[in-house]
């Protein structure tokens, strides 16, 4: 196992001031456990301070640093050089922005805009069920929670939305998932409204069951499983069982 790799990153660039797009090659040496975000920083520090890319927590928890590496959408704070070399069997990597939104500059995309789709499904409780008589929290059994807890782990990184085979007029896997969370949450009573969104114009009728979403999710959420439940009609509103 070499301690250092000679890498070539072929990075997609875009300059909003001149509207020019091009691919730029960067050659660099990197230790085996540097992460791709570390590589971008290294490029900024040593070669080109103008390369724009976004990250925040760099702990795999916020979903800001998603990009396409050799075509695969993933979080670049989690991608170690060594792992990338193993996964793609190459030392040359194409680095592209996510396609879920418009590019602002280089690798930074307008995720803010992509978020509109999540806002559309109302990521909160629209109308609350009656609360517990003792004034404290709702009672939700661990079993009830288990059925949808996986879906609550989504961090809206838009990797799935980038991989999804339906790119037009579709809310996208993560927004659909956010809606399903509240369909399965016993505290939410606005189920009809949510079902309308789910089966509506931009809802799951657009999904072509290709499972690309589940395949790329960095949080390993089986999104397609939840969409399949929806397609089977599993989210019929039940009489409130939250007490």
């Amino acid at each position: 196992m070499p301690q250092e790799y000679d890498l070539t990153l072929k990075i997609s660039r875009y300059d909003p001031d001149t509207r020019r797009s091009w691919i730029q090659d960067y050659h660099l040496k990197a230790g085996r456990i540097l992460r791709f975000v570390d590589l971008f920083r290294k490029i900024n520090d040593e070669q080109d301070p103008t390369l724009a890319w976004r990250s925040s927590c760099e702990h795999g928890q916020c979903g800001t640093c998603g990009m396409k590496i050799n075509g695969k959408p993933l979080l670049t704070c989690e991608l170690l050089v060594e792992r990338a070399v193993g996964l793609f069997k190459t030392h040359t990597f194409n680095v592209e922005p996510l396609t879920a939104a418009r590019v602002i500059r280089d690798l930074a995309v307008d995720l803010e805009n992509a978020y509109e789709r999540v806002h559309f499904v109302k990521p909160y409780i629209i109308a609350r069920a009656a609360t517990h008589p003792d004034g404290d929290e709702y009672r939700i059994s661990p079993r009830t929670l288990d059925a949808y807890v996986e879906a609550t782990r989504c961090i809206n990184c838009f990797c799935c939305a980038t991989a999804c085979v339906t790119q037009r007029n579709y809310l996208g896997p993560n927004a659909v998932l956010a809606n399903i969370v509240r369909l399965m949450d016993p505290r939410e009573t606005a189920k009809e409204k949510r079902l309308d969104i789910l089966y509506g114009e931009q809802g799951i009728p657009r999904c072509r069951t290709a499972r690309a979403c589940s395949f790329v999710c960095p949080k390993e959420i089986d999104i397609a499983h939840f969409i399949a439940l929806a397609k089977e009609g599993a989210f019929r509103p039940e009489p409130s069982s939250t007490r």
Binding site: G135, D136, E137, Y138, R139, I140, S141, L145, T152
Partner: peptide, 20 residues
């Protein structure tokens, strides 16, 4: 404030009795 969060939809881990 914990109860406020729970009522507004936070997915707290639960005990067997369904409490936080």
């Amino acid at each position: 404030q914990i109860v406020w969060l729970e009522r507004h939809g936070m997915h707290f881990s639960r005990t067997e009795e369904g409490r936080i």
